[in-house]
Design a protein around this nucleic acid. Structure first.
Lengths: 420, 420
DNA sequence: AACTTAGTTTGTTGGTTCAACAGACAAAAT
DNA sequence: ATTTTGTCTGTTGAACCAACAAACTAAGTT
């Protein structure tokens, strides 16, 4: 294995010097401690292949920068001098994520260790509001998070905004967000203005992409390091898809990847938000579930209820064994599997993650979904793909946003801290 | 930008030392010359950001290893001492690719510059043969190519075998190749035995993956460096898909990605090879076209004809303006677009490449395909995706196989040559 | 026309810097 | 006494920097 990203067959890579060498090894040590937990310098040296002396020097610099700290003595080994444990110092650096969605706004601030510093979600009927006031309100939330970070004396690695729509990541421009009813809009610019032209990096990204990244981080902690390929499906009014392939978030050529909601797999029925019929969304979206499970005058459909209250109603009936509800859930699960099988055939992920409302209803959706995948995926045993519910719920995107800012610190630790 | 592949958010990366630093920069210079053509040392230094002295040293080592050579003096600049052009020395190293397909076997040997040293294709009715004799014959072809490389005094970077089926790349085991009628089989092991336990690296990969890689290399030459995301569709009896995302070949968690032929998008009609109905293959595969365009007793369907002869017949009629043929082609093009739009929505490639028989019939398929994509892709302007015919024809997979071996040399030039 | 001189660019050389490495060693435990 | 840790000292290797000789053009001079 080489240290370069030159394995990318067509790309030319970047010339390296002593500085990038150092940067690389700082990053290696920092991520080693993050992923494998506190350990002595000697052990880091042994496990990474770096020289003991080199590790000492690298650790010293990372401590200097406030990214690592010395912990207790390691008394686990029977013989010899006990090592000084080196551990991640989460407190020094934080990342912030914020989300605009159809019926709520949310923020989260995570520290370097991934611990939650602040998490907040407020119901806002974004779809029936102008972008202006919505962004005003979002800026307030972001400012709250930034202040919370300041109070902890943490450096802010960056802020990332999640939007349920097509986003140009490089410029932070929104192209289209049908479910919000928004068209072209430079969210980055609008928000920078509202935040007083901040100095920290501010990015905008697709909500499902960020949720996928959060799920990826979560699953690598719980399921192990060999997982590199994941598809996340977020259920909401529409259906969003986020793909991590080979450990990288897949964005596509223009950042428009993951638009899975409009695969034409369903029989022509209700008209989709996009104007066509037969879209996957029309059979697995939240609206579809409600239409299948309830009548027009059903109290669960009361427009004054928010999403979670409606879901709570559905869950209550499912748990009570209501036949119509269970049948509707099975239906949605099967359709989820039909579209899911397409994704698994194309992408062959290790894991298919259910996010958003799919996660909440996971217990009822999982079985028909898994069956459909087993039946319809060509690769033996469904291509080895497991179906997993995300534990992050509706906080996935904001966490992913915070995470993506923090990732930059792990890639290049010299961005942070006192030493030049 | 850093030199590490640590930008992969979850992975730990590899510790770097002076050797990997050197390796990285050798690779940078070598690929720079490959991609941007012959140029002086001074110019390489300027363009890569490396120091002039460093470039001199790197070029010297690459010349030593037989990967670069000095060319003519560069008289293009008016003023000053003319530079000595440094150019890729293709002759030193070759890669070999070989392919098993339903009705032919093929090999290609390419040198480092991508020039064809040998290309050969022989019709073999693989589907009605046992694996044993087929592999015997393939080994003969590979041996021919290896000999051709030896005759040119070239070092062999590696051999890669392309198979139209599910392959575990790490072990070289075939899991399933429905169109060949083959099941589990360790192709790598079988071939190593037949080739006399060779010392060069021998790999096995999916045919569509390798074709995608070849198309990627081809298009970056012709269309420019900004292209990183591509989907290739190979039309044959079945339909294969290969995906390059962010400059990397996408393989999926277990190497089973790209199985696009069985997306359930068609109305239930003819039964697919996989046992289901409604598969995409059943409306865009070669068989589907023949059934739509011809009657049972049509001479084009004569089983003694091979694929190319049948296609030639179809093309003749299309050019003559035969209504039924044209209507069948339009039909296939539209269905191609319906499935293609799914892929474009999920993956948002810069380019959708038509390979195999789709390339041959491109002139008739392209228009309805592009229309379907424009209509059905959510992102504005079809996500910026263009439709392109591959110029490589049926040689794409073997070229990709040869290429993938050569790529290793560009990633780590120290694998090759005399100097330790 | 032949010769000089200035100006420009190339590629090498010698010395410097920086980071990883190797080995020795003191410190801290059993 | 033995084992392990972490630091210290000196070495190695690669990139960098500045200076310079080489090779050429373009102009001016004899």
């Amino acid at each position: 294995m080489t240290l370069t990203d030159g394995r990318r067959p067509g790309s030319r890579g970047v010339a390296a010097d002593h500085v990038s060498l150092r940067r690389n090894n700082l990053s290696v040590v920092l991520r080693h401690v993050r992923d494998l937990g506190p350990r002595s310098r000697a052990r880091i040296a042994e496990e990474t292949g770096l020289n003991k002396a080199t590790v000492s020097s690298l650790v010293a610099e990372l401590v200097e920068r406030g990214l690592l700290r010395e912990g207790l003595a390691d008394s686990s080994r029977a013989l010899g001098r006990p090592g000084q444990l080196v551990e991640l110092d989460g407190t020094g650096v934080c990342g912030v994520g914020a989300e605009i969605n159809v019926d709520y706004l949310a923020v989260a601030a995570l520290d370097l260790a991934g611990d939650v510093v602040l998490e907040k979600r407020v119901p806002v009927d974004v779809a029936h509001l102008e972008p202006g006031p919505t962004l005003d309100r979002l800026a307030e939330l972001v400012q709250e998070a930034v202040t919370a970070v300041d109070v902890r004396h943490g450096q802010l690695a960056g802020v990332t905004l999640a939007v349920p729509g097509l986003v140009r990541v490089e410029t932070g421009e929104l192209k289209l967000a049908p479910n919000l009813g928004w068209g072209e809009l430079s969210i980055a610019q609008e928000m920078r203005m509202r935040l007083g032209e901040p100095t920290y990096p501010l990015h905008v990204d697709n909500e499902a992409n960020l949720a996928a990244l959060a799920a990826y981080a979560e699953l690598r902690r719980t399921e192990g390091e060999s997982m590199h390929d994941l598809v996340l499906l977020t259920g909401a009014v529409g259906v969003g898809g986020g793909v991590v392939a080979g450990g990288h978030l897949m964005r596509g050529g223009h950042g428009y990847s993951g638009e899975v909601g409009h695969m034409p797999v369903a029989p022509p029925g209700r008209t989709c938000g996009c104007g066509r019929t037969g879209c996957w969304e029309t059979v697995v979206g939240l609206t579809a579930l409600l239409h299948k499970a309830t009548d027009r005058d059903d109290p669960v459909r009361d427009p004054s209820l928010d999403v979670e209250q409606r879901l709570a109603g559905i869950i209550r009936r499912a748990e009570a064994g209501d036949a119509r509800t269970l049948s509707a859930l099975k239906d949605v699960g099967t359709w989820l599997g039909i579209g899911g099988a397409i994704l698994v055939n194309i992408l062959n992920p290790d894991v298919l993650v259910l996010g958003g409302y799919f996660a909440v209803l996971g217990p009822w959706l999982k079985e028909p979904l898994e069956k459909a995948i087993q039946d319809r995926v060509i690769a033996p045993d469904g291509g080895g793909c497991r179906v997993v519910r995300s534990e992050l719920g509706f906080a996935a995107a904001v966490r992913g946003g915070a995470q993506i800012s923090l990732d930059q610190v792990f890639v290049d630790p010299t961005r942070i801290g006192a030493a030049s």
